[in-house]
Amino acid sequence: MVTAPETVVGLCARPYGLPMTGERAAVVVSDIRKHYGDLKAVDGVSFTVAEGEFFGILGPNGAGKTTTLEIVEGLRKADSGRVRLLDEDPWPRNPALLPRIGVQLQASSFFEKLTAKEQLETFGSLYGVPASRAAEMLELVGLTDKADVRENKLSGGQRQRLSIACALVHDPDVVFLDEPTAALDPQARRNLWDVLRAIQQRGKTIVYTTHYLDEAEILCDRVAIMDKGRILAMDAPATLVRGLDAPTHVVLQRGAMTVDDARAITGVEQVQEDEVSLTIATRRPAPVLSALAERGTLDGLQVRTATLEDVFLSLTGREYRA
């Protein structure tokens, strides 16, 4: 039934997973490796990010996302392979490149006891940016009313937004964000999504890592799914999901109809019933839904299409666990 893996592997085999846009490349990573003893943290990773693209590196904790990002940023040296960042080598430390990239680190990377505004002014001064830019950055991330609040008095979401503002204060071309939404409550995550979209609209290239597959699906132009130091698949989220050829699941309340009646509907491939619900799997949802409508069983109905989690499952053979 599951024919998806071949399709996805086919995508992966494309050299460096060239972007769809065909614009100039901001990041070109070729076969980088980083081993710590027996642990292959990064084991032959290649990808290209076009200018203006929102690129996500996904995967569970320990997949090698952060190490990959650090090699691209120039914080770590790869054992082998090559990285070109805005047509420059990030390693060894390249001062000419530094003003053109922005890196968001942990939410705690602040100067002690300084206010939000002072943090931005201080980080900005490292790049020769006038202090006036602090106000603009605070507005961008929605922290204008927190300008005079000290970093340790900000909430988790506010700290994340401030730390992104600090990464952007010198107006870089490429922005690297490492798990910016980790450990945030759902509301704070959604606020941050708006910030990330606003940054992309400014024409920035964004490379970010996350272990929230649903979030990447919403935000990213393209994603690379990583596991155990390797990229398993890379493409636009919708393409990856479509390539999976996974059935759509229609979920009804238990007792809305019998299992046999459900099986009789044209296009239904599989029917499952548990204590609370009846789940119908189909690859042709339109006729199934209209048949259900005719029977008047649309109450409490849910339609669940395949997600990146299903892609991960089909690629690795195991459930996705962040």
């Binding site: 530094l98 890196v103 942990q106 705690s108 990377s109 100067f111 490292l126 790049y127 600090c166």
Partner: peptide, 17 residues
């Protein structure tokens, strides 16, 4: 120690100073 732990050192290293 605090700057290293909080990655402020890293942040400074990524700036052109």
């Amino acid at each position: 120690v605090s700057w290293r732990k909080k990655q402020v050192l890293r942040r400074i290293r990524l700036a052109p100073v």
